[in-house]
Nucleic acid binder design. Structure first.
Lengths: 230, 230
DNA sequence: TCGCATCTGTGAACAGCCTCACACGTTGGC
DNA sequence: GCCAACGTGTGAGGCTGTTCACAGATGCGA
């Protein structure tokens, strides 16, 4: 089982959705929830599955992506510790709208539909928090639509790379080189482009001295230059 | 002024968000809300504006779109009678994320931030309804990301055309020809393509007998064939 | 250790879509 | 009635990105 319910509480509190809850409330959720473990690469759920639970990332990282009929996929977003996902299918009772995959080993809190709805009824203020979470999600997705419609591949890659760098290096010196651990194929799926095209742009940037390319990761040397492209 | 507060009530009831409310509650909203009129082509708000109100379409149609730096735009969605928009900026207190434009003469109910929040506190069940509205919005936007990433222009045009036909011809015979009133330029903005490219695909379809092109509108003769392309 | 999978690098050929440039008909205002 | 604005039709040319076909490097498991 999980180490202690204290640490579980702490992780939940980090989530925007649960910060307001008292210990008793959190314990009430935990009583009805289960902790699921997923190894790197595991699929957590697939588009089209019935969605009768919501999940919170306790540890690890979860990729939310949409599959195409011919085997490709776009990454819609990546969830990290404290993030909550799977609420859409849960709230409106329809199928899951996307795939969820563990990109590294994960521990998830699985909250069943019934207990979440019960909680929301008991604590209406949580509804507002959930609304805000959804609003942020909507903003992000809208931005993704704009980017796909307006920006070329180079600009999209630059933008994503910068975002990844910011997420990874929280609290680090913003001037020094930042390493982003991601394969070029995965980067392609994040920006909606092919692996080869991504590689070609990265090569350009390498020649310009903006980045250094390593196996499985990219080191940003000149973040300003990248920002000018996005 | 508006004809009678009875008809206002009726329109509001049609919205997914307000169906549950009793007359007294609706009147309470109306007491704090105002009715705004916008002529065809008017901009209702712009991306970046402070968002301290939510709107419900009483009459007309509102286009939600994102502008690009070089003057182009993508249409994110089109709101019709009973739909509610502008909640995002309102709920999380940030700027408006998109432009809103009246595509025909409109009457909107404008609900200020304070009264909506007050209402949500008084009627927590409304929160759930709002959540469901947002979930639908998210589903739509996610689908738009998928379409932009996976489908070529022809498929996107076909898909949008079918959706417009379904929206227009609610309750009509699904077999007969359906007319969609939209300019080719507007269609281009809906699918994220140029006016010229849209025209070329439409010409193809005309030659194949799938559609008939008229000035300012398109008549679908073979919906099945279009569906097979999307 | 061998083989297979994964990641990166690269060039050629091709397709899709955009931009530009132009032509025509209709509509509405002056 | 004339002109401007708008909607449509069409071709040439060019850029971007994809697909395909390889090739080398690394790492992992049987």
């Amino acid at each position: 089982m999980y180490g202690s319910s204290l640490s579980l509480r702490q992780v939940l509190r980090r989530s925007r959705l649960f910060t307001r809850l008292g210990d008793s409330e959190i314990d009430a959720i935990l009583a009805h929830a289960t902790v699921a473990r997923h190894a790197e690469g595991d699929q957590i759920f697939a588009k089209g599955d019935p969605g009768n639970s919501m999940m919170a990332v306790l540890k690890g990282r979860v990729m939310i992506s949409a599959p195409s009929p011919d085997g490709r996929q776009v990454v819609l977003t990546v969830m990290r510790e404290g993030d909550v996902f799977g609420e859409i299918a849960l709230l409106d009772g329809n199928e899951r709208t996307a795939d969820a995959t563990a990109t590294i080993d994960c521990e998830l809190l699985v909250v069943p539909r019934r207990s979440l709805l019960a909680l929301l009824e008991r604590r209406p203020d949580l509804c507002l928090d959930l609304l805000i979470v959804l609003c942020e999600r909507l903003r992000r997705t809208n931005e993704q639509v704009e980017d796909l419609a307006f920006l070329d591949l180079e600009a999209r890659i630059a933008k994503v790379l910068i975002r990844l760098a910011e997420e990874n290096g929280e609290g680090q010196s913003p001037t020094g080189p930042v390493g982003v651990k991601i394969s070029q194929r995965a980067l392609g799926e994040l920006v909606g482009g092919s692996r080869e095209s991504v590689n070609k742009h990265l090569q350009d940037w390498k020649r310009s001295g903006f980045i250094v390319i390593e196996k499985g990761s990219i080191v940003i040397r000149d973040l300003e230059a990248l920002a000018a492209l996005g």
